[in-house]
Amino acid sequence: MTPALSIDHLFVRYGRTDVVKDVSFSAKPGESYALVGESGSGKSTILRSVVGMVRDWRGKIEVDGMPRQGRIDLAFARHCQMIFQDPYASLHPRRTVDATLLEPLKVHGIRDRAERVVQMMQDVGLDPRFRFRFPHQLSGGQRQRVAIARALMLEPRLLLLDEPTSALDVSVQAEILNLLVRIREERNLTYVLVTHSLPVVSFLCDRLGVLRHGRLVEEAGVSALRTGTFAEPYSQELYDASLGAGDRDLAALQEATRGMGM
């Protein structure tokens, strides 16, 4: 089976420094893959080089078996879309929701635009009465729904998500995570998610890759998050630092029972 996204020996350079060094991984169709790491580990840069926002890269990027080269074209845009971290920054402040969602349809010459916009708003849980509002008239969660709707307008197969919930409150984060799980099931999408939050990975993903200083140090199944066993000491460190208070008690309890030979 052709992988939905395959990255082979990728190097990305900003000025004179390599920020991504020899990274290789692939995501199967329908899979949800997470790249985790701290700031500056190069995780967002990898996504940006896939969608052509970073030019200075070497190596091989294949999307659904098609090698990426030169500028991105319309066919690529229909196949792969990206959702950004900050819904305040990623929507045009002087365009209504309607104009934002219509734009990809106009560029691609797709018909039945009005119906598609209304349908998509319903699909992502936005009341159609928000159709002619501006971003500043919406809450953070509603804006992220607009950004998701915009990415889905062209019915892509592969969705790249760059920290989709880290700018949101916990209760809003739960809503957006539920939405992402639902649309992946409904549309059979492939996700490549970048995040620093391991619990989000646990909820949304099947596999994860841990990045540190631009290198992929470990790949693991999401079950590693449940058992808390990583091969690399750095991944383990990241895991321990991300444990919540409740999780810690649980981990200590498991440790104790294991010691008792249970």
Binding site: S171, N178, P199, S202, F203, L225, S242
Partner: peptide, 15 residues
């Protein structure tokens, strides 16, 4: 509403 490290829920409760 907070996802946990050993998440097994399919849907997070929403307020």
């Amino acid at each position: 509403a907070v996802p946990r490290m050993d998440e097994t829920r399919k849907v997070l409760p929403v307020m």
